[in-house]
């Protein structure tokens, strides 16, 4: 009885802590959503009224009409999807090769590639910028890459550097390395070449790691701000994050519209997260990060 009581008390404490932190985490969301539904009159000088007394869903329509959001969403979607799909392919096949194939210099090449994890993308954006500007025969450039802006302000600049990543390759390799060697041997005896081996045997087993990678990459690409900020110049190449920032500058006093736009920009990722979180956690567990 006493033990039961004690357990109940600790449980109560545990729940109190958990709920406290959950509330802290969720307050900004609540602020954003509720503000996005407020009519303009309710925005200022209103004490602590979180809830809109007169919800106005039309804010969302207004916010979307106020800028070229269709274009921004299109850009973000295109860049994100392209990068996710291609990088999954590139990373997994490379990770597989590093884990399961035998060729000279394999481990050296792998570790050499790991340097990439340590490079902050912002630290190399200057040469990347200059490089894209000098792509020959693009964006008004001549054959020597002079005279125009090259790939700047195009999808190329937003996509190319993210088609593979050291971290993704690392995760894939860690994942594939845990499979028993018998798996390859049987297949090899059947005359499978490396690519066949990957496509027929390993790819179908890669669900968890690919899901985890896909989620990480989607979140990264969708939310990236610095890179498109530097690489694009015109309105029609803006991604949703840039759009949001400019929107903030243009509708600075209309917090309700701003919050509405922000909610809409965030929504795709939240929906995806709710759908896929199981895979995400599984992916983490199976990538060798468990204790």
């Amino acid at each position: 009885m006493v033990a039961r009581l004690a357990r109940d008390r600790t449980d109560l404490l545990v729940y109190a802590i958990l709920i406290f932190f959950a509330v802290l985490m969720l307050v900004p969301f609540a602020v954003a959503v509720f503000t996005s539904l407020k009519p303009k009159e309710e925005l200022l000088f209103s004490g602590i009224n979180l809830l809109p007394s007169n919800p106005r869903p039309y804010n969302y329509v207004e916010a979307m009409q106020a800028a070229d959001w269709g274009r921004y969403f299109l850009n973000s979607t295109f860049v994100t999807v392209t990068c996710v799909v291609i990088s999954l392919l590139f990373n997994s096949v490379a990770g597989f090769s590093f884990a399961r194939l035998h060729f000279r210099g394999r481990d050296f090449l792998f570790f050499f590639m790991l340097i990439g994890i340590m490079i902050p993308p912002q630290a190399i954006i200057i040469p990347q910028f200059l490089m894209f500007r000098a792509v020959p025969l693009a964006g008004g450039n001549d054959i020597a890459g002079q005279g125009g802006i090259g790939w700047l302000n195009t999808y190329w600049a937003l996509i190319m550097p993210w088609l593979a990543g050291s971290f993704g390759i690392f995760l894939c390799r860690q994942y594939y390395i845990n499979f028993p060697t018998e798996l390859d041997e049987a297949a090899r005896l059947d005359g499978c070449g490396p690519l066949r081996l990957f496509l027929d045997i390993y790819l179908p087993l890669s669900g968890p790691v690919l899901a985890a990678l896909a989620i990480l990459k989607t979140v990264f690409m969708w939310n990236d701000f610095f890179y498109p900020l530097i690489m694009t110049t015109t309105d029609n190449m803006r991604t949703v994050q840039l759009g949001l920032q400019v929107f903030a500058g243009e509708y600075m006093t209309d917090w309700n519209l701003l919050m509405a736009a922000q909610v809409l920009v965030t929504l795709p990722l939240i929906v995806m997260f709710f759908f896929l979180q199981r895979y995400f956690v599984e992916g983490i567990v199976t990538t060798g990060l468990k204790g």
Partner: peptide, 8 residues
């Protein structure tokens, strides 16, 4: 806005 310069 989409009609402004967007090379390539």
């Amino acid at each position: 806005p989409a009609a402004t310069a967007a090379p390539a």
